[in-house]
Simulated scan of single mutants.
Amino acid sequence: MNYEDALSLFEAMTAPVESDLFMGEIVGKRPVAVLGSDDDAQAMRFGLIGDDPKATILDAYRRHATELTCHIAEPKVPPPEPRAVAGPEEFQALVKEYHAAEYTVRIPQASQLSPQLARFIRALEYLFSGMADTVVFWSGQGAEAPVHDDEYDVIAIQLLGKKKWYVSREEASLRNPWRIGTPVPEIGRKSEIDVEPGDMLYLPRGTVHTVSTPSEESIHLSIAFNPVTVRDAMQAALDYLSDEERFLRENASGRGDAVARGGAMAPLEDRVREGLDRLVEAAKSDDFIRTAMRYRQSRLIGDMPKLDKGKPVMVDPDTIVRHSPTAVAALLVNGEHVDFAQPGEHILVNAAVEQSLRFIADHAQFRVGDIPGPVDDQVRVALVQRLIASGFLVPDA
């Protein structure tokens, strides 16, 4: 998956909102609702985990039954406990126990419910340069969520039944994810939004909202992600500078326990200020900042879950190969080596094949013999076989 592939998938999923509008005027700025459209995007969203979302979820009982959480606006009784179940029927019975007590079932880490969903999640991760995840919310009739805001941006896609969202019209706080113990926010002025299967909402992080279920039952996906913030970019610049300057890797104070000890922490205060001065000086260079962001992207991709390993296959110059559905890559040239970062792995290759690797990363499908660069067919075949083995490439059917 390259940038164009990821953007095309994103725009297909969020249509009729154009990607330039979404990226430039909506993300991090305001909520948006995409409702009641009978186009291909509506069908695409509705079928994101298959034509029968309930069956898809219940068939994944082994992975999810023991991981259930829940929420409710005003609890009357303690919730059931998640537990292992023997099959889809027992999983549904467990869900009904939650619903009987008026709890909404929350199923975390659900991005692997379908290949289509996994691919969309990977597109979000690539476009927004950050990890993304999916939570399933399965509510019974009359269920109500507490008023809250989230520490991540949310794309909510309705799959079954109806929900009514109450979304604050106040500016989103864009709150930090590490803020703990903050008071329950006031929703204030709000919009009421009725959603049906295939409808989509986007909420910037820190948007106060609540949800109720008027239908017999309701299922929606909540896809969480965070765009790169100014803080993230500054952190990337600091990380890159610390690779270059030993000073930033040294002990911050004369004592290892200075922070725990409290009080004056000299020379920590002075060294922090010197470190900031060095960062400001380095950041005067646009190239320094751009390089720092490339290093950040490489680490992000390398930290993703590994791709499924490929089986050995015969490859020749006429073989057609393509990216596996959730493959993305970032390339960094480090002296005599190219760091080819793919999900869960950094592959170091001689810098002589940089042009060849960039072609492979940028082209979602290609003929092995068409790989450019100062290499022969033997090297082309070896590169492709290595990337098939790692799961990045698959032979085209």
Score class of each variant (00 low, 15 high):
Val95Cys: 13
Ile155Arg: 09
Glu125Asn: 12
Leu94Ala: 13
Val85Trp: 03
Ala73Lys: 11
Glu144His: 07
Leu48Thr: 07
Ala100Met: 09
Glu67Gly: 07
Ala100Asn: 07
Gln109His: 06
Ala55Phe: 02
Gln42Trp: 13
Arg169Ala: 06
Asp153Ala: 03
Ala93Gln: 15
Met44Gln: 05
Pro53Gly: 06
Lys96Ala: 12
Lys164Cys: 04
Gln42Phe: 14
Val34Met: 09
Leu48Asn: 00
Lys54Trp: 12
Asp52Leu: 04
Cys70Ala: 15
Pro146His: 07
Arg30Ser: 05
Tyr61Ala: 06
Lys164Ile: 12
Phe120Thr: 01
Ala118Ser: 14
Val135Ser: 08
Asp40Tyr: 03
Tyr103Arg: 10
Leu94Asn: 08
Ile107Leu: 10
Arg119Cys: 02
Ala65Ile: 06
Tyr103Ser: 12
Thr104Phe: 00
Ala143Glu: 06
Ile57Leu: 13
Pro31Asn: 04
Ala118Gln: 11
Glu151Lys: 14
Ile157Ala: 15
Ala123Val: 08
Pro31Phe: 04
Asp38Ala: 12
Lys164Met: 10
Ser111Val: 01
Ala101Tyr: 09
Cys70Met: 08
Phe137Ala: 15
Ile72Trp: 03
Pro88Gly: 05
Tyr61His: 13
Asp40Asn: 06
Val32Phe: 09
Gln116Phe: 04
Leu117Ile: 07
Lys76Pro: 03
Ala101Val: 10
Leu58Glu: 11
Pro75Thr: 08
Ala86Ser: 15
Gly47Glu: 01
Glu74Arg: 11
Pro78Gly: 12
Ser139Tyr: 02
Phe128Val: 11
Arg119Glu: 12
Ala73Met: 05
Cys70Ile: 08
Arg30Ala: 01
Ile157Glu: 05
Gly130Thr: 01
Gln42Tyr: 15
Gln112Val: 08
Val77Ala: 11
Val32Asp: 02
Val77Leu: 11
Gln92Met: 15
Gly130Gln: 02
Val95Asn: 12
Ser114Ala: 13
Trp138Cys: 02
Arg62Thr: 04
Glu81Met: 11
Ala33Ser: 09
Ser129Lys: 10
Asp40Met: 14
Lys162Thr: 07
Lys96Pro: 00
Leu113His: 13
Val167Arg: 01
Phe128Gly: 12
Pro115Leu: 10
Ala123Thr: 06
Pro146Gly: 09
Asp59Glu: 13
Pro115His: 04
Gly142Met: 01
Asp133Met: 04
Ile121Trp: 05
Ala84Phe: 11
Ile121Val: 15
Ala43Glu: 05
Lys54Val: 14
Met131Thr: 06
Ile49Leu: 07
Arg45Pro: 00
Pro115Val: 03
Pro31Cys: 01
Val154Ala: 06
Lys162Ala: 12
Ile72Ser: 04
Leu94Tyr: 07
Asp51Gln: 09
Val154Asn: 09
Trp138Tyr: 15
